[in-house]
C-alpha cells in the first residue's frame, strides 16, 4: 500500500515529502512508530499528524492512496 507523506517546517528538513510503500502498516499508530524508527530525531520532536487533511486524534485505519501530513508547531511572528 502506498501513501503520500507531506512534511512541514523543520520536519521537512528531516523527512522529505515522498510517496512511501507501507505494506503491512494498517493504522496511524503503526505509521507513527514506523516514521519514528526510520527517522529517530522525529521521536524527540513535537508534531501533529493529519490523515487526508483531518487531524489525527486517535488510532485511525489507513486506506491506500492516503496522505499523511506531519506538522510541527511554529512560534515565529
Amino acid at each position: 500500500m502506498e501513501i503520500d507523506i507531506i512534511s512541514f517546517g523543520r520536519i521537512r528538513e528531516l523527512i522529505e515529502s515522498q510517496t512511501v510503500n507501507i505494506a503491512g502498516l494498517k493504522n496511524t499508530d503503526e505509521v507513527k512508530a514506523y516514521l519514528e524508527q526510520r527517522y529517530p530525531a522525529l521521536a524527540g520532536m513535537k508534531y501533529a499528524l493529519a490523515l487526508n487533511k483531518k487531524l489525527v486524534q486517535s488510532k485511525t485505519e489507513i486506506e491506500g492512496n492516503s496522505t499523511i501530513a506531519i506538522m510541527p508547531p511554529f512560534s515565529g511572528g
Binding site: 512541514f8 517546517g9 523543520r10 506538522m71 510541527p72 508547531p73 511554529f74 512560534s75 515565529g76 511572528g77
Partner: peptide
Amino acid sequence: FAAVSGYEGQ
C-alpha cells in the same frame, strides 16, 4: 492564531 517559520506560515 498565526505563526511563521522559515518560508512557511500557519
